[in-house]
Amino acid sequence: MIIHIVAGGPTSELPNLSDFDIKDACWVGVDRGVLTLLSKDIEPVMAFGDFDSITDQELTYVKERIQKINIYHPEKDEPDMELALNWAIEQKPEKIRLFGGTGGRLDHFFANVHLLLKSKAEGIHIELINKQNLMYVQHPGSYKIERDHTKKYISFFPVSGSVENLTLQGFKYPLKNRHIPEYSTLCVSNELIDDNGTFSFTKGILMVIRSSD
């Protein structure tokens, strides 16, 4: 099972959600993201949020359409997206994808980027996706990465300290056992030269961003 969580970010930032509406997908709406899903004829199985970004009339509509809805007080410790993500993690899915989490307020965007770090603690692959980018984090190991003509640029950023022994094979700009210090921009806008490549490192946390122009 793959769980797709759609938050209430600008719809202009969203990819075509129907491309992700596969057989084993489970959809979850967060705040205004519930209306986004319903407008695209996608029925979320769960809804989360304080729903302070929609009108009372819209909330009534949501309650009529969604059987399982979790409404929270606006003054709470966790953002709506994190509440939905915590539920999704409990379901033990193969993968979690977050949509509608970019654009608009930068504090919300950075909060959603931080949520990607839950992938280490929970052992579940989590991606943050918008119309132009896909991002996720990886932990020490060796990984295969395949060419995607829709997102040909691949960038690597150290997260929470430096990354040790980064090796990139099959890339336009290869590396071998390179120390990448915190805040480095050395690995921005790389590209695969083959149908697939590999990246590996022995220490640190690496954020991977795949982008299109």
Rank of each mutant, 00 (worst) to 15 (best):
I2D: 04
I3C: 04
H4S: 13
V6E: 01
V6S: 05
G9C: 05
G9S: 05
S12K: 12
S12D: 12
P15Y: 10
N16R: 10
N16I: 11
L17P: 10
S18E: 14
F20P: 03
D24T: 13
C26L: 13
C26R: 14
V28K: 01
V28W: 00
G29L: 01
G29W: 11
V30E: 06
L35E: 07
L37Q: 06
L37P: 03
L38P: 13
K40N: 12
K40M: 14
K40W: 07
D41K: 15
D41R: 12
E43N: 15
E43G: 13
P44H: 03
P44K: 06
P44S: 03
A47I: 03
F48N: 11
D52Y: 05
I54C: 03
T55F: 08
T55L: 08
D56T: 13
D56C: 12
D56R: 11
T60V: 11
Y61S: 01
V62D: 02
V62P: 05
V62W: 09
E64D: 15
R65S: 11
I66L: 04
I66S: 00
I69G: 09
N70T: 07
N70H: 15
K76M: 07
K76T: 09
K76I: 03
K76E: 04
K76D: 02
D77G: 05
D80R: 06
D80W: 08
M81S: 14
L85V: 10
A88N: 10
A88H: 10
E90L: 14
Q91T: 02
K92I: 00
E94D: 13
I96C: 06
I96P: 07
I96E: 09
G100H: 08
T102D: 09
G104K: 04
G104E: 09
R105S: 05
L106M: 14
N112C: 09
H114Q: 15
H114L: 15
L116F: 01
S119H: 03
A121G: 11
E122R: 08
E122M: 07
E122I: 03
G123W: 02
I124V: 10
H125N: 10
H125R: 01
H125L: 00
I126P: 03
I126N: 02
I129D: 02
I129Y: 07
K131W: 05
Y136R: 01
Y136T: 12
V137R: 03
G141F: 04
G141Y: 05
S142Q: 12
K144Y: 12
I145W: 10
I145V: 11
H149M: 15
H149L: 14
T150V: 01
K152A: 10
S155D: 06
P158C: 13
V159N: 00
G161Q: 08
G161V: 05
T167D: 07
T167K: 02
L168G: 00
L168H: 06
L168N: 03
L168R: 06
F171L: 00
K172C: 07
Y173W: 13
H179E: 13
Y183T: 14
S184G: 10
T185M: 13
L186E: 08
V188I: 15
S189M: 07
N190C: 04
N190S: 01
E191G: 08
L192S: 02
L192I: 09
D194R: 12
D195C: 07
D195Q: 14
D195W: 00
N196S: 15
F199S: 02
S200Q: 12
F201Q: 02
K203R: 14
G204E: 08
V208M: 04
V208I: 15
I209L: 14
I209A: 02
S211K: 03
D213R: 11
